[in-house]
């Protein structure tokens, strides 16, 4: 009902607090991730641990980083595979 009234009276934009919340959400993901450089190193070590159960990877070449994009923030991991382990089958 309020929405309809809002449109009738020419208020079509989202309330500005929604914009504030969305911008804060994005900026804080980045702020929090960059607070400690050890944080990414920790993730990297754990990721290597999990992946090596399934495939043979080049541990030296693993890169984990936080990428800031227009409307989202992503954790990007680049994991070079040396070879697949034969014993592991897709279930």
């Amino acid at each position: 009902m309020l929405d309809i009234l809002g449109r009738v009276f020419g208020r079509e934009e989202a309330p500005s607090k929604e914009i504030a919340k969305e911008r804060l959400r994005l900026v804080l993901v980045h702020d929090r991730a960059t607070v400690s450089p050890q944080f990414l190193e920790l993730i990297k070590e754990e990721v290597i641990g999990v992946i090596t159960n399934y495939m043979d990877i080049d541990e030296e070449g693993v890169e984990v980083s936080i990428h800031n994009m227009e409307r989202s923030v992503a954790l990007v991991a680049n994991i070079p595979i040396r070879r697949m382990k034969r014993a592991v089958k897709a279930v």
Partner: peptide, 16 residues
Amino acid sequence: MVKRGDMMDIDDIIDI
């Protein structure tokens, strides 16, 4: 301002 959606309210801030 909170009422008309132009200021974050208590729950928004606590949530963040």
